[in-house]
Amino acid sequence: AEDTGVRVELAEEDNGRKSTIALRLWVEDPKKLKGKPKDNGAIEFTFDLEKETPEDVAQEMVESGFFHESDVKIVGKSIRDRVALIQWRRSRIR
């Protein structure tokens, strides 16, 4: 996955069965972002693999003031990369 400067990880162990997972996102390299992120903390959130898209979450984070509008794509991509990896691991385990 491309190094976007935004790190996304599982916030808790993935049992491979629940459609909703917990993720944690934080900025590792602020220089990669166009806008100044609001916080330098880690943002934990739940994500429904079946019903939601990474872009939904990225837009909500912008609307909640965590990121500047100009960074919605890079935040969305960072989440998408991690979600794709989780889904790939699940398919491999199945």
Binding site: E28, N40, V57, M61, E63
Partner: peptide, 27 residues
Amino acid sequence: SLNAQVVHSAGRRFIVSPVPESRLREP
């Protein structure tokens, strides 16, 4: 605003907590 919670109008809860020291990249 660390350890803060923000609930988006769509209902999603964002919980902000400090990034674990071990996860911060070396400058």
